[in-house]
Every structure is written in C-alpha cells, then in structure tokens.
Design a protein around this nucleic acid. Structure first.
Lengths: 232, 232
DNA sequence: TGACATTAGTGACGAATTGTTACTAATTCG
DNA sequence: CGAATTAGTAACAATTCGTCACTAATGTCA
C-alpha cells in the first residue's frame, strides 16, 4: 500500500466493463433516422445501436468513429458525447458503463454494411433499455445544441441550398420556420457563403448552392436570454 | 462461444477502472471557486478534484453527490455531467475512464471537511492533466448552459435579491449586464416570484427577496438564433 | 438634522430585431 | 403559351432591446 489519500481511496476502484454506444443520425425522407444493426439471434432484441468497447489506448471519439465506420461504411461528419450511463438499465453486451455518442452524417446514398438499417426516430424497433435511454438523450442533446454548434451543417453535404438548410433546422427543431426570417438571420450570422454553382431540382427556380464558412462576427454580445426550461 | 453478433463483438470488452471526478463550484467573493482536496504526500500534485469510484450499483450522479458531501460536508444543489474522459492524460488515481460531473452549491458558510479548500478558478494550483481538462470542460459547459438550465439559481440560496441574481449571471457570462434590461427579460420569463421579505445589506435601499418559481410560459416560440460558435 | 453617498427599482424613448405580407424571378409541365 | 412550383427579396408593422433618466429607501457623517 503505497499511498493513503484522505478522500479518494484508490483501493475502492473496481474493474468495470465499458462500452461506446453510437447514435448515428441522418436526415432520411423528411425525418431524422438512426442507424441500427441486427443483433445475434440469442439476444432479447433484434436491433441495437452500433457499439463496441474502445481498443487499448483508443480515445472515446476515436472508438465512436471506428464503430460508425463499421456500420455505415463511411466516417461521420461530426461526433459529440451525449453522456455516460452507469445505471442498471440493461445493455445488449451487459456493459457496466456506456458512453453515448451521437454521430451526424449527411444523407448517404452508398450501400450500408450488411446487417445495418436506417429507422426513423419516430418508428424505432424495440431496443435494450440502456440503448433506448441513449437514443432519447441523443435527440435531446442534438435539439438543444442546434444553435450553439454547427450540427445542422453536418447533416448536409458540403454544398447545399438555403432551402435544404432550413429543412434541416425544421427537422431538428420540430417546427416550421419562416423563410424570409430564416434567411435574414442566417445572413446576419456570417455562417455561410455562396458558391457560384446552382442546383436545379426538377421543377421550380434553380437554387444557389452555399457552403458552411463561418467568419468571426464583430463581438456584438447580447443580453441574457432566459430561454430556459420552458417545457418543464 | 455462445453468440457471434455481426458487429458488436462482446469478447473485445476489457475491464477498465472508472472514476467519478467532481468539480464543485460556488461563488466566492466576486468570482467562481472550485473545491479541491489535498492529496497524499506521494502524489505528483498537492491538490486534486474530489473523486472516487462509484460503489457497486451506485449511479454516476449518486456517486457524485456522495463525493461532494465528502468534501463539502453538504449536498450540492445541482449535478450535471460534463463528459467522459478516456484519453491518456494522467488521473491522480490512474483511472482509465473519468466521468466529469459539475456540482453547484450556494456560498457555503459552514466549515469544510478537513483537507478541502476553495480556489478561485482563475488561480487554481497545479492539477493532474486529466483533472485540469475536466475543470476546463466544466466551466465551459456551465457557461454554455446558463440560459437553458437553472444553473444560476443553484448558486444562490432559495431566497435572493435580483441584484444577487444579476451578479451570478455576470460571473458566469464574464461580462456586465444592464440592470433594466436584465430585470425586464427576467420579468418576461416568469422564472421568479417575489416573496414578502426584504433584505437590508447595510447601506442603500433594501432589496426585495425573490424565489425561483418557474411557471409555464405560453408557447411563444421564436425563430432560429444562430448564436453559434462565435468565438471559434 | 440635513446633505450626500449608495443601492434598488422603473418609465420611457429611440434603435435594432423580428414576423409577415406581398411581391419578383426562374424554371418545368401541359 | 399559361399554370404550377420553387427561390429569393423588399418593405412595413410589431415587438424587443439598450439606454438614459429618473424616483425610492436606506446608512453615513458633518
């Protein structure tokens, strides 16, 4: 016994099993979809989030990137932690601790890895209780951080129309936005810049393509918002 | 070998050591302070965050509450996860994985547990690299969530003056706020209600005491904010 | 006792932002 | 060609926000 700190008692540390559970989200035909993988026949549920234990020396986000690639066949555009879960809710691999990570990717055309499938968030199949909690938390976190993090842009390809972008925001916020207001606010934010390409989507006027190119805004700090906990 | 799922390979799961590291924050003479505990003589640093491994069957937040009580001598007013850390930065107990949790508490008059002391965030002593990262993340998270979570109210006693509240917001946001605007926005938010008590702080006009009592606001949803990543 | 410093709290006005309507522009479809 | 459809914008009304200037209630100190 080499040390005896007054408070943290090292000897209490037990070994636990750790899992990284990834909620891969992508816009899929007018709604958000999560990527699930088929489980082995023996399990209680037929589907689960893609997950794995981190490899030796592998960071949590690195593990999440690897896991995402294993199910999606491509690297995600953005990864963000949504929380650690260590309660008694059952994990498909019986991990003691789960780190939930949300991965965002634009609509993917390429074929998925075998055994993986997209499910609309509103129509998920049965999942283990732990995975269900992680999905719920992930969607909450994503909704909460839309206006503080470039989440919306990671659900779109590098070049997109302003209508595409507005559609993503409406998807994430769950309510319609006014076109003129949306564009004015976006203009003022210096987050996008026009390219010289245009996209013609069949009928209607062609739309100009923009790219995400945030420029530093002059430090015009506003007052407090008190946007808090309205839904309590 | 009972099962062979296509993707999550159960056999990969290794055992890891898990720590819950708590950043206890409180307003202390015009700035935010964190609670540190003295480490054993053998360690590389003299101070560390209060931490411990969760007990068997104990949730992460429960562990954080217990750890906080062990250093502060009282229960925290609010706990919030700030992230999981599994990189190679050194932890004082050499835990493989840390779950960082921020605990908020009003200014405490009662004596701390022996070996614990408050340090202003701007004047922290040397900490292990892992703990340093957790503190940094905790302050970032707190600043980021002030206007989405009743954080500010958990740094104040149940009854407080509006000037007290404004002071906390200024502490958390790191900039001065205009009195009239602050009060108008607060009024509109239906977050506080007046009590019939008044506090005389020595000089100046006595201030009315308020309590945190959020009422549901009529669903007046606003447009998008694009308050994103200005500081990038 | 009476001026003055100090903190609390509010009314009001101009500036800025936001919500909305209504328009113009460019394309496909029949 | 005209109708339908989608993109993009000008302009005005309504609301919100930043600020100034004030009133109110206390303690301090000559």
């Amino acid at each position: 016994m080499r040390e005896r700190p007054p408070h943290p008692v090292k000897s209490v540390v037990r070994k636990t099993t750790l899992a990284v559970d990834v909620v891969v989200l992508s816009p899929q035909s007018e709604s958000l979809a999560a990527l699930l993988v088929r489980t082995a026949p023996g399990g209680r549920e037929r589907w689960s989030l893609p997950w794995d234990a981190p490899l030796t020396g592998e960071g949590l986000e690195d593990a999440a990137a690897r896991i995402t690639e294993g199910a999606l066949g491509a690297a995600p555009a953005l990864l963000e932690q949504v929380g650690a879960f260590a309660d008694t809710r059952r994990h498909p691999g019986d991990a003691d601790v789960s780190v939930g990570i949300v991965a965002l990717t634009p609509k993917v055309e390429a074929a998925l890895v075998a055994g993986a499938e997209w499910f609309a968030l509103s129509a998920l199949p049965a999942l283990s209780p732990r995975h269900r909690a992680i999905v719920d938390r992930a969607t909450m976190v994503v909704r909460q951080r839309v206006d503080q993090s470039p989440l919306a842009f990671r659900l779109l390809p590098p070049a997109f129309t302003l209508s595409d972008l507005q559609g993503i925001y409406e998807l994430l916020l769950g309510r319609p936005l006014h076109k003129a207001s949306f564009r004015r606010a976006l203009q003022a934010s210096y987050l996008v810049e026009p390219t010289d390409e245009w996209r013609s989507e069949g009928r209607g006027r062609p739309a100009q393509l923009f790219r995400y190119a945030p420029r530093k805004r002059r430090g015009a700090r506003r007052g407090v918002r008190f946007d808090l906990f309205t839904e309590g």
